[in-house]
């Protein structure tokens, strides 16, 4: 079964909790969803699990619903609650 390789970018508190800016992740394919990607990240990095519940996910800069498929080669930005100003 084909797998999906994505680049995950961490922002805000997620970057501090993960201790890194980005990483490549391989997910079992062929069509993992955003929810499954978040579950995989939460399993890999349990310190993020709670924060991921309030995190928006952008696939190549387009905010995606939890039910949308994650495609091979996507840049996945994990966007926690925003606090600019």
């Amino acid at each position: 079964m084909a797998s999906v390789v994505v680049t995950v970018e961490y922002y805000g508190v997620l970057r501090a909790l993960a201790g890194l800016r980005k990483e490549r992740l391989e997910l079992p394919g062929p069509t993992p969803t955003v929810a499954e990607l978040l579950a995989a990240i939460g399993g890999l990095r349990p310190q993020l699990a709670a924060a991921l519940e309030r995190t928006a996910v952008a696939l190549d800069e387009q905010v995606a619903a939890r039910s949308e498929p994650v495609y091979d080669g996507a840049t996945v930005a994990l966007l926690p609650p925003v606090s600019g100003g």
């Binding site: 922002y11 805000g12 508190v13 501090a16 309030r54 995190t55 928006a56 905010v63 966007l79 926690p80 609650p81 925003v82 606090s83 600019g84 100003g85």
Partner: peptide, 21 residues
């Protein structure tokens, strides 16, 4: 899509809670 982290005189820091996208 902006995040702030406050740094305190005691040397620690904190990401402030915000508004979910």
């Amino acid at each position: 899509e902006i995040w702030k982290e406050e740094h305190y005189v005691e040397g620690d820091s904190k990401h402030l809670d915000g508004t979910p996208i």
